[in-house]
Design a protein around this nucleic acid. Structure first.
Lengths: 355, 355
DNA sequence: TTGTACGCGTTATCAG
DNA sequence: CTGATAACGCGTACAA
């Protein structure tokens, strides 16, 4: 057994051709006569050569075929959210056309302990980066990206000027749902928001706090609801999950008289709210209407079909992939604003006449 | 603006030191006097040099700091499963200590169309690979891995000899749950299995088919149940989800007399079965006992606490990371067999006396 | 269609 | 603590 693995040069020598010819046989970027191809392949098989070393190829080409995806939350919790999952789906698909794969990266710019151990935007051999939900951090890393000419795209976040954003018109969409409820006659409405970024536990929010919400999505959706219901009480959930929606719902239906409608900022929250309503002996939508947001399939929610806003999450991921591809080809990518489609399910109904 | 980006050589020249010294300043692998360090850093700042190019470093070092994770299902569906999510969590943590990150790879060895576009085990610059749930495919890729001396580890799958496996004692665990039901007096029991790999739709399985189940996990858990209940009817779900469990439950509770207990091969399935039981007017656990498998938190299942087998999924991921680390350091990694912990929740109870 | 020549940007090694 | 040297393995003009 030879100490050193065979290189393409060895193969070329064995096949009696030049290294460049052998290279071309493997990359297929130039026509090669069938005879030589066979010789090269045979020599490769003989030597146990299995193709160009990706590391060397990536240095030479200046491309690694890897796109970094940066999360601002622990990966474990990120993948709990179906929307993130779908975004990843679209993204992987989008970058696949580019011949690239996706490298999971965690934003630990605020956690210096881990910063060394883990690969980062700065140390990973990536051709481009996609930031998911970055709100404020990582300015430093972003400067480095710029200095290195590494394209960056942000999904639902703001990374400063020059960084294309893929976002949703959250405010307008949420306003639609609110208007829908208003047109059904609902006046006593409660809102369940996504985490606000202010603090962790689920709780009622003061009106004055709302301007300090640091999570863009939460703030924008709330604004949309406020356009219609300026005074509705808002409960900030600790996370986007059925269980947190359930907790919020319990708090909400403890009030007397109970609200006749609840605007939830995500489908998972809405599902939890519905459970809480059932627990409180309220029928949905007869006694209380509930709207969601996202349009994801909530496992186990059947037979309800949420009235919700269907957001094109997979398309957002794809768009990010496309944007990255464009920038990699030297074109520049514009920011994109997606819109939601309102879907009326069976969880909203006209407000019951006050008996 | 200069056409070519500054390299470490430029920095060294500007700082009046040798390239190797400059390199050492950035890698920190050798002590450097404070004075020189400052000079080098200053020169770097001056030239807009932001650190070594990861691609070149990876060629030289022979390490890219990337571990590939190969899924045998679409990424979108893979991340729907909480167990996979947790495994990923442990894995990312495990490889982080190695200073590595995780590259998502899809096994498209049976789908030649995509095989070119997407990066694969063969073309991605990875230091090691972790296969999740690989059952039979990818032999070819595996040979290449071996030829390249790239460590491979498999989680809940079999990649042939020489490839360390991280698995669960599925059979023994499931037998425990079955024995628990037996000790509670249950005789009429139904089983809901994970997908069998035979075909997609959820349906009752013929006894004869069971030997042909191609998914290891499904087969092993079924064997465990069969050790106690050799003749219980088995319904193969189309996927591990609450909705599929619900469908299975409906089929199961349509029978008269209905089973007094259901063994589900996953918690999600169990949650769906419970829903179906409720729908059929059966109380859990009074009228029917249900056991799950995995010990994950099922969002929205409260107030039930499943009787289930808690599997150390995060630890499995971590173990895979550790195994990879070991192999990368030249030590060899042994296969690992994890065990589950039986947890009695409030979804199982003694069988009701036949009235 | 094939071969020649060179550099991609770094870092290990070892001597000073 | 610093510097000289020599790869790492490949792709691609360009010429033949």
């Amino acid at each position: 057994m030879r100490a050193r693995r065979a290189t393409i040069a060895d193969v070329a020598r064995a096949a009696g051709v030049s290294p460049s010819t052998a290279s071309v046989v493997f990359s297929g970027r130039t026509p090669v006569s069938d005879a030589t191809r066979q010789r090269v392949l045979a020599a490769a098989a003989e030597l146990g050569y299995t193709g160009p070393d990706p590391r060397a190829a990536s240095l030479r080409r200046g491309r690694s075929g890897i796109v970094g995806v940066v999360f601002d939350s622990p990966l474990s919790s990120a993948f709990l959210d179906p929307v993130t999952t779908q975004v990843m789906d679209g993204l992987t698909e989008g970058v696949a056309e580019l011949g690239a794969g996706v490298l999971l990266l965690r934003d630990n710019s605020k956690d210096p302990d881990l910063a060394d151990a883990q690969p980062t935007l700065m140390t990973a051999p990536i051709d481009a980066a996609v930031l998911i939900g970055c709100s404020t951090v990582m300015r430093e890393s972003l400067d480095v990206m710029r200095a290195r000419n590494i394209p960056v795209v942000v999904i639902e976040g703001d990374a400063g000027e020059g960084v294309p954003q893929i976002r949703l018109d959250n405010r307008e969409a949420q306003r639609q749902a609110a208007s829908h409820l208003a047109s059904l006659g609902h006046r006593r409405v409660a809102i369940v928001t996504l985490p606000s970024g202010l603090d962790s536990p689920g709780r009622w929010m003061e009106h004055a706090e709302e301007s300090r919400i640091s999570v863009d999505v939460t703030r924008d959706r709330l604004s949309g609801a406020r356009d219609v219901y300026p005074d509705a009480p808002a409960f900030a959930a600790a996370a986007s999950s059925i269980d947190e929606g359930f907790a919020a719902g319990r708090a909400i239906f403890a009030a007397r008289p109970h609200p006749t409608a609840v605007i939830a900022q995500s489908d998972l929250l809405a599902a939890g709210v519905i459970r809480a309503a059932e627990e409180a002996g309220l029928r949905v939508p007869d006694d209380v209407s509930v709207t969601g947001f996202d349009g994801v399939i909530v496992d186990g929610l059947a037979p309800y079909a949420l009235t919700t806003l269907i957001q094109p999450s997979t398309e957002k991921g794809r768009a990010a992939g496309d944007a990255v591809a464009a920038m990699l080809e030297g074109r520049d990518a514009a920011s994109l604003l997606f819109t939601c489609v309102f879907r009326e399910g069976n969880t909203t109904a006209p407000v019951a006449r006050e008996a």
